[in-house]
Design a protein around this nucleic acid. Structure first.
Length: 254
DNA sequence: TATAATGTTTGAAC
DNA sequence: AGTTCAAACATTAT
């Protein structure tokens, strides 16, 4: 029994890693439940975790007639076979070990995950559907592309780092309106979002993610040397956007 | 030490 | 009544 830790940067790929680390408890019976989550904890006691899945930034544990949805939000974390100082929000103990979640959102939802989630919307899923994402994206005419990329209904799992990196890779400025971006470029954004999610996953696994940032938190463009622009609260989501004003195109109505 | 960050939900205000 | 927006939540590194 060894201990594992850490989720920071809880975007979709990090939740895939979380799910993999906890999969050792899939099919196992819950012996003890504790934590300060405001749900009926007892519902899990003595029951088997039938499945563990993820959808975007959601981690899902299925039981007989309900499932638990965990969202790490901004500051959530978890530990396997060890504890932090802080009180766990949810702790599950099994014969073969235990895990705890901290400062996260925990919900108990009646029914089956398949009734709630469209797996084709999850950028990390085997059945992710780029066509579907594209069709939803083009409808968001009046949105800024930086807002649409963070829309979990379209790109479940994409977070702010992925947003900034994808826009850099596709050479689009975050303040471009969706309706002003050519169809071909929108398709490239969809494709690149998916690909970058898997690059993020690969680098995250080997603790090399930050090393590969091209624009996020950077001061100087790696490609042209221009100063990277940081806008603190861009768009309706008010998130940080980093971009190179030289390499990235601002699409406008003209 | 004050600040800010990878995110979402809630409820007030219009 | 529907939309929008700010506040709330809460941890950790810099």
């Amino acid at each position: 029994m060894h201990s594992e830790t850490i989720v920071i940067m809880p975007e979709g790929p990090s939740i895939v890693i979380l799910r993999e680390e906890l999969s050792q408890f899939k099919g196992k019976k819950v012996l003890h439940v504790s934590g300060n989550a405001k749900i009926e904890l007892e519902r899990m006691k003595g029951k088997k975790v039938l499945d563990m899945r993820s959808w975007g930034k959601h981690f899902l544990m299925s039981f007989d007639d309900f499932f638990i949805r965990i969202h790490l939000l901004m500051f959530g974390s978890y530990r396997v076979n060890e504890e932090k100082e802080a009180a766990p929000r949810l702790k599950l103990q099994f014969k073969n070990g235990e895990f705890s979640f901290y400062t996260c959102s925990v919900k108990l939802i009646e029914g089956n995950v398949d009734d709630v989630y469209d797996w084709e919307r999850d950028t990390m899923s085997d059945v992710w559907d780029p066509e579907k994402a594209y069709k939803s994206l083009v409808l968001e005419k009046e949105e800024l592309i930086c807002d649409s990329l963070l829309d979990q209904e379209i790109f479940a799992g994409v977070g702010n780092i992925i947003k900034n990196e994808v826009l850099f890779l596709t050479k689009v400025q975050p303040a471009s309106l969706v309706k002003d971006i050519p169809m071909k470029k929108l398709k490239e954004i969809v494709k690149t979002a998916r690909e970058y999610c898997f690059d993020f996953l690969r680098w995250k696994r080997i603790f090399e993610l930050k090393k590969h940032y091209r624009v996020h938190t950077k001061n100087v463009c790696a490609d042209c040397g221009s100063k990277i622009v940081l806008m603190q609260k861009m768009g309706k989501r008010k998130r940080r956007s980093f971009f190179c004003p030289h390499c990235q195109v601002l699409y406008t109505k003209e």
